[in-house]
Computed example of a mutant assay.
Amino acid sequence: MAIHAVVFDVNETLFSLAPVRDRMVEVGLGADRLEPWFRAILVDGIAAAAAGRFVAFPDLARHHLDVELRRGGQPADDATIARVLAGFEQTTPHDDVGPAFEQLRSAGVRIATLTNGTAAITRAFLERCDLDVLVDEVWDVEAAGSWKPTPAPYHWAVERLGLPADRVAMVAVHPWDIQGAMATGLVGAFLERPGAAGYPSGFPRPDHRAASLTDLVARLAT
């Protein structure tokens, strides 16, 4: 069945968090603290969603950065935290993002983004990289009142697109995001970027998977 719209996750799917890691190093944290920090944000945000509550990504990001700084014996003042989080304003797209978006546009497939982060950060990223003209919708999960992978954000996105769920694909590097999308009827397209943890064998297999975004969207746009 033809795909009429593709919804993209943002953090790590479209851009690397390397600039945030660089800022963490600048304030005295180890480069290896990025992944535990980001994972803690996701765990708490998803746990809150499972309990029927919504907590904004920036609030959790600041909280867990405060924890990291204190554990590392570094100042945890507002200026230091803001300096690290400003790394999100320096992100650049993975090399395959622009070509993949162009492929979809050429095929007449609509493009949307849906992040557990903020639409403002996504929009600034797209504008900074001249990709905004290729994207139809820029969303975060706040309007849905729940984080991915709970059903609400996917249902909300499909409703906004005005399409049947099976005509919409979700692209992400996070297996849990693919599982949430597939459980609500969307097509799951797993992007297995180099260095990623891979796809858990206990999860139902994604509908599509590839190591590059251009290869993945080529399968969706046919």
Results as ranks from 00 to 15, higher is better:
D77L: 10
A172L: 09
L163H: 08
E35T: 05
T184L: 07
H155I: 10
V20G: 00
E102F: 02
D22G: 04
S201D: 15
P58A: 13
Y199F: 15
L191V: 08
D207L: 01
E12K: 10
T122N: 06
M182G: 01
V138A: 05
G198L: 11
T214M: 10
D140H: 03
Y199I: 13
T118P: 00
Q90W: 13
V7P: 01
A189E: 07
T184Y: 08
V138L: 10
E192R: 08
S106Y: 03
W176L: 15
L34P: 00
A152N: 10
Y154A: 04
T92M: 11
R209C: 06
A157H: 03
A82Q: 15
A210L: 09
A189K: 05
L29Q: 07
A107S: 11
G98E: 14
T122H: 06
M1E: 14
M182Y: 03
R62M: 11
F8C: 02
D59M: 10
D9R: 00
V158N: 01
E35Y: 13
L17G: 08
D140I: 03
Q179V: 07
Q74D: 12
N116S: 13
V67E: 09
R21L: 08
S106G: 11
V27W: 05
V133K: 10
I81W: 05
G202K: 06
L69A: 03
A107K: 01
D44I: 06
T214S: 10
D77Y: 09
A5T: 00
A100S: 06
E159T: 03
D9G: 03
V55N: 00
A221T: 00
R205Q: 15
Q103V: 03
L104C: 07
E192F: 06
T150P: 01
E142D: 12
P200S: 06
G117W: 05
V133W: 10
R123Y: 11
E26V: 08
D140L: 02
A189G: 01
A18Y: 05
R21E: 15
P204N: 13
D32W: 07
I81A: 08
R70E: 15
P204A: 13
F203C: 06
L34S: 02
A124T: 05
L126V: 04
F125S: 06
R53W: 02
H155R: 13
P175A: 08
N11E: 13
L69Q: 00
G87Y: 12
L186S: 01
I178S: 01
V135W: 08
W37R: 02
R219C: 09
G195H: 09
V7I: 14
S201G: 09
V158I: 10
C129V: 05
R39D: 14
A107V: 02
V97D: 02
R209H: 15
R110E: 08
A120I: 04
W139H: 05
D22Q: 12
D132S: 13
A50R: 13
E35P: 02
A48R: 05
F38K: 05
D130Q: 15
P75D: 12
A221C: 14
G28D: 12
F15T: 01
H63S: 14
G198M: 10
K148G: 02
V109K: 04
